[in-house]
Amino acid sequence: MKVRIHVSLKPGVLDPQGRAIHHALEGLGFEGVNDVRAGREIELDVDDSVSDEALDAMCKQLLANMVIENYRIERVAA
């Protein structure tokens, strides 16, 4: 089954990339964008037997850096 891991910067952590994207959107004339935060999505194809605990451990040990990032695990129907 497919699993999507959404990794995002924690609130309060400065996001220079998001700020640059925000600036570029304004440069293109888009109005009303208050803030931009850039993150990362990692898609895994795993056996159905892979537990939530194992996915959680993958995120904590490698996929996210818990000092600066949060993660959210989403199981996607195949």
Binding site: V13, L14, P16, Q17, A20, N65, V67, I68
Partner: peptide, 17 residues
């Protein structure tokens, strides 16, 4: 060293990009 947990903190993209 920070990623390995031997030192605290993290090194992020330079503020200037």
């Amino acid at each position: 060293l920070t990623e390995a947990g031997l030192l605290p903190g993290a090194l992020m993209r330079n503020a200037s990009q």
